[in-house]
Design a protein around this nucleic acid. Sequence first.
DNA 1: GGAAAATTAGGGGATTACCCTTAAAGTAAA
DNA 2: TTTACTTTAAGGGTAATCCCCTAATTTTCC
Lengths: 220, 220
Amino acid sequence: MTRILIADDHAMFADGIASILQAEADIEVVGRCLDGPSAIEFLKKDKKVDILLLDVNLPNMSGIDVCKKVVEDHKQTKVLAISMFNEESFVTEILNNGAMGYILKNTGREELLKAIHTILGGKSYFSKDVTQTIMKGLMKNRKGGNESSKKALPKISRREKEVLDLIIKEHTTQEIANQLFISLKTVESHRSNLLAKLNVRNTAGLVRIAIENNLLAKSN
Amino acid sequence: MTRILIADDHAMFADGIASILQAEADIEVVGRCLDGPSAIEFLKKDKKVDILLLDVNLPNMSGIDVCKKVVEDHKQTKVLAISMFNEESFVTEILNNGAMGYILKNTGREELLKAIHTILGGKSYFSKDVTQTIMKGLMKNRKGGNESSKKALPKISRREKEVLDLIIKEHTTQEIANQLFISLKTVESHRSNLLAKLNVRNTAGLVRIAIENNLLAKSN
DNA sequence: GGAAAATTAGGGGATTACCCTTAAAGTAAA
DNA sequence: TTTACTTTAAGGGTAATCCCCTAATTTTCC
């Protein structure tokens, strides 16, 4: 028997889902919560909830935060996010916080059940529309990163890249000098040039830019 | 008229695609290359290629590197990656390097044409299977990041997170102290604790860990 | 209500990073 | 072949980080 908890502030919607699920022989709806804190409370008392059907947009405490807490404190409970909105930010945020799936509220009965069973099986599930949204967002980042928008960061020379790579790996200037068999002063030069070229103030900026533009360990 | 260049080391496959495309009234196959360097050469001479159908796994020079070069030097040419393999690493790599789409070699005529027209329209296109692969990979990262595998980085307190956030933004310890209205020495304490907690040697490590685990600007 | 953790703060010292300038030798492209 | 960039290196100085220690107050959690 699969035990399911529903967390949604729209009572009617929660009821609708509950009635769909109650009709299934192998599913039991163990509770309905209208906000985040009460869902957390419920899980503290009932440790055997298999799936939390969680609305992403909840009052008091956002679904994101609820999801985070549930994933941390109740590893036996899997989170299936439900939302009115097919927004990339919502999807990525809650996935980043441990949700196993994301479906939209216009999802039909069959798909809801399919999502639940998929997640129970340890796999993840997303509505078709959600998948498309994610892929689009993924591409936007890529495009921004490769052709137009980005400030087209100036060319970093081969040696500078080697130095940068070692900086990111937490090596000091002296260590870098030893590893590359060059003088401490030379490495300092490269560092200065990197700071100027990448237009940052210090090591923190270097690491940030390098990671953001994945300048590290690439064929170049 | 859409001008297409095919780059694939399997001559028979390249011929097959060519014959499919030639049958289309609005498409002209302007060339077939058997490896990366020759494709690059071709594009240097013919500046009006609209789409490069690029095999990800090419001899001599990998499709990834070819794609990178094409996106950099021939912005009018869009890259549609083709591959035998529905491998996450291939897909993400070539997308990271500016490809506009990724289809598998078992793709039928209709889907190939659909992909081409979609890309011509400035949008991205992926085979269904490819999309699923990406989503799976995306989830693996998330899961690894939230429950099991990862070294479950120790809890960073609210104040430490604030300090870390400002470090990443390239502020010095003194500046951070001023902004948070606390002593320089206090910020130094937080810094030391962060270094110890995250098990890194210096600022570079802090920034790297923070970005990798996106500890920044989160509700917490 | 008491233990644990977080936040605050200091002294003092060692190491490292950053800044400015200069400059020679090697490399690649126009 | 000249120009531009890269790589190398140095002197001399300032600023910032890192390290070790201690310790009081406050907050948080069981």
